[in-house]
């Protein structure tokens, strides 16, 4: 197992180098960051020349990339055009994004798995229909509608939750977390239900029942554990996605998370922001995926990583 983890960690190095290079080239292709920096008027030529020189924009792209990686290796993620170090901004914003993602994932794991299991064992009955239909409704409503409605009703009109989450405290993040988790709850519930229903028909369940095990043990221990694998895969993917920030939800509730920062970097064509943030996100994806792969082995001993 240890060897497996080390091997996987080593594999990350080329992935990170490749990903940062691709992102770097794409940011380069985004266009000229100089135009539009001077309000409604064009920037003076001397300003443009200095801006390009200061940010190495007048150098060939390979030089720019090499220079960037050199700085990253020295622990410097670069500085945004506005003068703030990218690392400092990320440190400021990651705690908020992590809190928000954990609330959302917590909601989706607990509510989703529970709803899926109940629907699965009551297949074809009222509860099953309730779960499948309500999840369909949630899936088909766009997130900005759910978010906007929740803010209007629970925040503005009823005053149950804070309207926005600018400071990013747990109390402020509960409603955005619920909104963000709502969509995934629906997916998790449906996934859970489908795999559970399928596994309940398998031979080992019949054997367990024949052996005289209680239904709770048959479902709760034997079937559930096997059925969790696709659900864990999905949740793992979702953690990675949520760490990247939820641009729409962040906008609605004014959460100062990673997504908004990345969005800003893209609109300002600020290469340091985009590449620095994405590099971190790639790293998170890779590590969460590793964690999921290790979890497979725990859930199902037949899947061996060695």
């Amino acid at each position: 197992m240890a060897a497996y983890i080390v091997r996987r960690l080593l594999q990350m190095i080329p992935v990170i180098i490749g990903a940062t290079f691709l992102i770097f080239v794409m940011v380069f292709a985004l266009g000229d960051p100089v135009a539009g920096r001077c309000g409604e008027r064009p920037c003076p030529p001397a300003y443009v020349a200095k801006f390009r020189a200061d940010n190495y924009l007048d150098q060939p792209i390979l030089f720019q990339y090499g220079h960037y990686i050199w700085r990253v290796l020295h622990g410097d993620l670069g500085t945004a055009f506005s003068g703030q170090p990218v690392a400092q901004e990320l440190l400021l914003r990651f705690p908020t994004t992590v809190k928000l993602a954990l609330i959302a994932v917590g909601v989706e794991a607990v509510v989703g798995i529970l709803a899926g299991v109940l629907a699965g064992i009551r297949k074809g009955r009222f509860l099953d229909y309730l779960v499948t239909i309500s999840s369909l409704v949630v899936i088909s409503v766009p997130i900005f509608v759910i978010g906007g409605l929740a803010q209007l009703v629970f925040g503005l009109r009823l005053g149950l939750f804070p309207v926005t989450a600018t400071q990013g405290t747990i109390g402020q993040l509960i409603m955005p977390g619920l909104v963000l988790g709502a969509l995934s709850v629906a997916y998790v519930a449906r996934l859970m239900r489908a795999t559970l229903v399928e596994n309940l028909r398998s031979d080992y369940v019949r054997t367990a029942k024949a052996k005289g095990l209680t239904p709770a043990r048959t479902v709760g221990v034997h079937t559930l554990r096997n059925s969790l694998i696709p659900v864990i895969t999905f949740i793992g993917y979702d953690i990675g996605a949520l760490m990247g920030g939820a641009v729409v939800t962040e906008r609605i509730f004014n959460i100062n998370g990673i997504g908004g920062y990345l969005y800003r970097g893209i609109t300002l064509k600020d290469g340091s922001i985009v590449v620095g943030t994405v590099t971190c996100l790639v790293l998170i994806y890779l590590l969460v995926n590793l964690l999921v792969d290790v979890l497979y082995g725990v859930l199902d001993p037949r899947i061996s990583n060695d």
């Binding site: 400092q88 990320l90 590590l287």
Partner: peptide, 27 residues
């Protein structure tokens, strides 16, 4: 296996902390 799992999660957290907090500037 559980220990390995714990080790893996710890490594992940440590890596995250070092990778994304590299600047070490004051907040």
């Amino acid at each position: 296996r559980t220990r390995a799992l714990a080790a893996a999660s710890l490594t992940s957290i440590a890596l995250l902390a070092t990778a994304c907090g590299g600047g070490g500037s004051t907040t």
